[in-house]
Amino acid sequence: MVTPLEIFSGFSVDDIPAAKAFYGETLGLRISDGPMGNLDLELPAGGHVFIYPKEDHTPATFTILNLVVDDIDAAVDELNAKGVVTAIYDDPQLPTDEKGVLRGRSVDRGPDIAWFRDPAGNVLSVLQD
């Protein structure tokens, strides 16, 4: 059996300075420069995510990070005020309101969730359980 000393995830971006500004300033997360031109994103529970530059980066087609919040509407309003677009899906399978929030709690279909993209096009979400 594998006995890891630490576990972390990672994803690529095409512009490290833009990613650093987005994750650090726009989202207000703890981020620092890594030793190889990468970024280290510190998660609230103590884990880390490795954000690395990739010249031929292709945005992830799935949600790479989910940020759990106390108030989905306040979080979406704050993101929108900072220029982050949360209404990114127009899909009957993901029926979102004008803010881009899928109101899953009211129909017993999971959490209330809103998706948005980082500057590299990767999908993230804010969700309220």
Rank of each mutant, 00 (worst) to 15 (best):
I72C: 10
L39M: 01
G28Q: 00
F11V: 02
L65I: 11
D56K: 08
D40L: 12
M36G: 07
D90N: 12
T58F: 07
P17A: 10
G104W: 14
L67M: 14
D71H: 12
T96V: 15
G100N: 10
V85Y: 05
A120Y: 06
P35L: 15
D108A: 15
S9G: 09
V76Q: 04
P4N: 00
T26W: 07
P119T: 04
I64S: 07
L65N: 03
A74M: 10
I113V: 15
F22W: 02
D14P: 05
V13P: 01
E55H: 12
L27G: 00
A75I: 12
A114N: 01
L39G: 02
V76P: 06
V68C: 05
D33L: 07
E42C: 06
L39N: 03
G104A: 10
P59S: 00
F116A: 06
L29Y: 09
V84I: 04
T61M: 06
A60W: 08
M36V: 14
L41W: 03
N80A: 14
D108N: 15
P35V: 13
M1T: 07
P92R: 13
P35Q: 09
V2K: 09
H57P: 04
V49F: 04
L127S: 05
P35E: 11
L43P: 03
G37T: 08
V84A: 03
F8K: 01
D77C: 11
L127W: 03
E6D: 01
E78H: 13
P17R: 05
L124A: 04
L67V: 02
S125I: 01
T96E: 12
G46Q: 00
Q128S: 08
G110N: 07
E42S: 08
M36A: 15
S32F: 03
K20E: 11
N122D: 04
F8L: 01
L124N: 01
F50M: 06
Y52D: 13
D40M: 15
E25F: 07
G37F: 09
A81W: 08
T61N: 05
E78V: 14
L94V: 15
D56P: 04
G34Y: 02
R103W: 14
D97Q: 11
P92S: 13
P17T: 15
V123I: 13
S125G: 10
I16E: 04
E25L: 03
D73N: 15
T61Q: 12
G10N: 02
F116G: 03
K20V: 05
G104L: 09
E42F: 08
L65A: 07
L67N: 06
A81L: 11
D108Y: 13
P59E: 01
W115E: 07
